[in-house]
Write a protein that binds this DNA or RNA. Structure first.
Lengths: 126, 126
DNA sequence: ATAGCTGCAAAATGTTTGCGCGAAA
DNA sequence: TTTCGCGCAAACATTTTGCAGCTAT
C-alpha cells in the first residue's frame, strides 16, 4: 500500500473523533481540509484500512449506516440511547464467558460483537 | 392491525427458519406459496411485526442486510464463521455483567446486542 | 516508467414510499 | 362502505466500481 495524503487525512480524522463516525461524517470533516476529496475515496480508504487491520468496522449501532473506529484492538461498546454517545469498554468483562460457552455448546468463540445499549451516567442525573 | 394472509405467511415462514433469514430470503420462500406477493409487502410486514414486538431485528451478523428472528424474547447469538449457522443462547450468561458495568461506568444497561462469532461444535471435528 | 490512487459519475444493493385497486371489518 | 393493506414502480440511501488522468515510488 502506497502513501496517499487522502488516506492519511482520513485516518487522522477518524482518530480525532471519539464518537465512531460514519463514512459520510468523515467525508464532511476531511472535505474542510481537502475540498476536492470524493466520497468514493473515503469509502475505498476506510475499507483498505479495515483490511490491513488499522481500524475497525462497527455495525449495528444503528442499522442505517456503518460506523468506524480508530481503535483496532478488540473491545466492546456502550451506546447511550439518550445522548448517542459511544463508550469503549474492555473485553475482559466478557472473556470468562467464552469458557462457559465452550463448555455448554462446544462453541469456540473467536470474535465478540457486543453493544450494550442503555443510559450513560451523564444522562441519569435527574 | 387488520388480518392479512400475506402477513400470516411471512410470520409462519420466519418461524420455520432457524437461520435468521433476510427479507429477501423470506420473500423468495413466501413467493412459492403466493407467487403474486411483492418484496415491498415483505418489508412492510416485517417492520410492522418488529414494531408490535412479535419478531426481532438482528443487525450486524453480516454488515450487508438485516436479518429477522421469530423469537421475540431478548437473547443472544452464536454465529459460526464456517457453516454460517446461528445458534440462540440465553442472556443469563451476560446478566451478571450489567451490574459490573453499572458499578464501573455508572451506565444503566437496557438492551444487549451480542453476537459471538467463532466455530461451532459440528465444524470443529476435522 | 509504472503501478496504484484519485475524482467523477454511474451502477449496484438494500429498503422505503406514493399510488390506485382490492380485501377485511 | 370505509379503511387498511396490497402490488407495482419509482424513489431513496448507502456503498461499490469503471474509467481516464495524476502521483508516489
Amino acid at each position: 500500500m502506497r502513501y496517499s495524503r487522502q488516506r492519511e487525512l482520513i485516518y487522522e480524522t477518524l482518530e480525532s473523533f471519539d464518537t465512531h463516525p460514519t463514512a459520510e461524517q468523515i467525508y464532511l470533516h476531511v472535505k474542510k481540509k481537502m475540498p476536492s476529496i470524493s466520497l468514493g475515496t473515503v469509502y475505498r480508504n476506510l475499507n483498505l484500512l479495515v483490511e490491513v487491520g488499522k481500524i475497525i468496522k462497527v455495525d449495528s449501532i444503528d442499522s442505517s449506516s456503518t460506523r468506524y473506529d480508530a481503535r483496532n484492538d478488540e473491545h466492546s461498546h456502550l451506546y447511550c440511547l439518550n445522548c448517542k454517545k459511544v463508550i469503549d469498554i474492555d473485553l475482559d468483562f466478557f472473556k470468562p464467558i467464552d469458557a462457559e460457552i465452550k463448555k455448554e455448546f462446544g462453541f469456540e468463540v473467536q470474535e465478540h460483537d457486543i453493544i450494550l445499549k442503555g443510559i450513560c451516567s451523564d444522562c441519569q442525573t435527574n
